[in-house]
Nucleic acid binder design. Structure first.
Lengths: 193, 193
DNA sequence: TCCATTTCTTGCCATTTGGCAAGTACATTC
DNA sequence: GAATGTACTTGCCAAATGGCAAGAAATGGA
């Protein structure tokens, strides 16, 4: 079983010896999701931490009018989990669904906690992953403010081109906070340039 | 020195005995900020954790066009710190400034860490405060999406009325993601109802 | 391969929000 | 209390975005 992308990811979060990294990685299990399958359904607790080795997922929720709103896209070599639910053990208001067939490595909250206790170097990982998620989320959010829809689109396509390969435009539109109609028009203007 | 609001706040984050709470509170120092004084300036590291007993502060940054954007308002009985900078020890891109004269209790990152080690019950506080911040930030953000400016305004005035007592409308406008002109018009329509 | 379904695009027009500039209200200072 | 400055409001028009419906393109079965 080749877990190399996983160990690289762990190493980027907290430095550790190769032996330790391998030992940690051993506790993850291979896991696949089929296209459209749910990683997390709202109303449940997000109690798994999933390293996405290949494929694409999206998180979404519903606004007050009942419209689906995509809140995030997960791509290759990133982890998938809903931090608020995961760390608070509260039910999630978000859904996470596979946009393509996905493969990766999964571990439960419980097992992860066990590892924190048994492997000292790994202890800081829990906090580090939380901080990482938070900072990324905040930057993403602040980077969106006070920009036109077109600017947000250009930013997304230049930084996350992969998403456009897998996600429907209507999902991308709601992620950008606009309608699919508007996104279509923005793309037309953009392609003229 | 009456630190009661502070101990109540700590207790709400992690349950602990009264003696422990008092012991923890003892390590905070009284601190005041004058109106317009900065708690944090961009380019510096947010290394203090400030419990705001009275007054109002705001966080702001600048968008790509150089316009000031208010990102948060801090009110009575909440804590003030910039989580990303605080936990990562990186320089902050945000400013935090007092909107009124403020009083409260402050503690440094270093001292807080010391307390985590010396008071076992307090250990989880660091993680808990991070999770709390994250969840609050995420809810705030998601609550804003796909709502009209007027709906965002109505939501703010009903949940955070206090802010309107202290903050200039132009700050509130940029927090809501609109211009002061638009906010003024929204308020006119709103007051007709 | 053909049909049905879904996704995406487009035209038309409505609504929301912004930009600017002028005017008003309010506060501060001398 | 007059002068100054800042915050806020308003009118006018422009720009951005949305809503709807129809059509085009892509996709997925059978």
């Amino acid at each position: 079983m080749n877990k190399s992308p996983l160990t690289v990811f762990i190493e980027n979060t907290i430095p550790a010896s190769n032996d330790t990294l391998t030992a940690i990685a051993e506790h993850f299990e291979e896991k696949t999701f089929r296209k459209n399958e749910y990683f997390l359904k709202e109303g449940n607790v997000s109690d798994s931490y999933f390293f996405l080795a290949d494929g694409c997922m999206r998180a979404f929720t519903f606004d007050t009018d009942g419209n689906e709103v995509t809140t995030y896209f997960y791509t290759k070599n990133r982890v998938v989990f809903e931090a608020a639910s995961f760390f608070m053990h509260t039910v999630s208001t978000e859904n996470i669904q596979a946009l393509t067939d996905c493969t990766g490595y999964i571990i439960t909250f419980e097992k992860l906690n066990m590892l924190f206790h048994s492997i000292p170097e790994f202890r800081e990982f829990g906090r580090a992953m939380l901080v990482k998620e938070f900072v990324a989320f905040k930057q993403r959010t602040l980077g969106m403010i006070n920009k036109s829809a077109e600017a947000r689109y250009e930013n997304l396509i230049s930084t996350e081109k992969e998403i456009f390969k897998y996600a429907q435009l209507k999902y991308i539109a709601s992620y950008l906070g606009i309608t699919d109609t508007s996104l279509s028009r923005i793309r037309r203007e953009f392609s003229k340039k």
